[in-house]
Amino acid sequence: MSSIATITIAPRAAERHVPSEAAIQDAGLAKQRIEPASASARALPRWVRRASGPIALVLLWHIASVTGALPGEVLAGPSTVISSAVKLFQTGELQAAIWVSLVRVLIGLAIGGTVGVALAVLAGLFRIGEDLIDATMQMARTLPHVALIPLLIIWSGIGEAPKIALIALGTAFPLYLNVYAGIRNVDSTLIEAGRTLGLSRAAMIRHVVLPAALPSALVGLRYSLGVAWLSLVFGEQINATAGIGYLMATAREFFQTDVIVVCLVVYALLGLAVDFTVRTLEKVFLAWRPAFSGT
């Protein structure tokens, strides 16, 4: 008769008893969240540090104006600028100008962004699209779009069309470049994993390629918004009858440096606002993507 040996198998590490969270806390080993040194109680809040630069700049500007180092004829002081901004706000000129300029930027961004993203998707997903589109876009993006203002005036007059077209041209290329690069830089491992799972081509594009390209697309959107406001400054010099650029042009004729500074500050604040909007979108849509946030 053959004897039957009894073999005792030790439990694997994954099957061993793991202390519960309550047991760990009872043992005095409560979990502690590790905070970076910059987030310690002794550190200043981030909003204070972020605001310190602009505040210091305004203080230096005020001191230079009060001491006479910066004459009012060259650049009005902060108090004069604030007073002019209040007057423009009370008369309603400032709100009307902001609204007109904002509408122009949004329309131009919608047109240019749609064209840029559509061409980038075609060139990024399909080789024939790359062959037909990419070379033309790479040549066209090197042209300074501001230099096209004379042609835009000849083609579409001096109304709203050349202003919006200028913004659309300025915003299309950054979005095209970033979306195209985002699609082509998708990790090939993800593509192979999708094929292994049996994803169709449409499902692969929807669930793998486009989500992986989204970070680059949002970077392109931030850059395009900056170019949009820069294009607006030039576009509103084309026989504008309303908008922030129109206020600047009128103030230039009368050497009103305070109004010019008000318009520049409004441009900067609007740019900051739209950049904050894109940052918020990044936090919402890229919550799944761990990223370095500084130390």
Rank of each mutant, 00 (worst) to 15 (best):
Gly112Cys: 08
Pro150Phe: 09
Arg222Gly: 12
Gly243Lys: 10
Leu281Arg: 06
Thr280Val: 07
Leu218Val: 07
Val209Pro: 04
Thr277Pro: 00
Gly116Gln: 10
Thr171Phe: 06
Gln256Val: 01
Arg252His: 06
Ser79Pro: 00
Gly77Lys: 06
Ala217Asn: 02
Ser79Leu: 12
Asp275Val: 10
Ile260Lys: 07
Val146Pro: 05
Pro211Tyr: 01
Gln237Asp: 11
Ser65Ala: 15
Ala213His: 03
Thr171Arg: 06
Ala123His: 06
Val261Pro: 04
Leu70Ala: 05
Arg127Val: 14
Gly243Arg: 08
Ile133Gly: 01
Gly245Tyr: 03
Pro71Asp: 01
Ile98Val: 15
Leu269Gly: 08
Ser156Cys: 12
Arg195Glu: 12
Gly92Val: 09
Leu59Thr: 07
Gly108Cys: 07
Leu197Tyr: 10
Gly53Cys: 00
Ala140Lys: 06
Ala251Tyr: 01
Pro19Glu: 14
Gln90Cys: 03
Ser293Tyr: 07
Phe173Gly: 04
Ala273Gln: 09
Leu175Gln: 14
Val227Gln: 09
Ala193Asp: 01
Glu282Lys: 12
Ile7Lys: 09
Asp131Ser: 10
Gly235Val: 08
Leu109Ser: 13
Thr80Asp: 08
Ala212Tyr: 03
Ala30Leu: 04
Leu29His: 03
Arg195Trp: 05
Ala51Gln: 04
Arg33Gln: 04
Ala39Trp: 11
Met248Lys: 13
Arg33Glu: 14
Ala27Met: 06
Glu253Thr: 14
Ala39Thr: 10
Val208Gln: 03
Asp26Val: 08
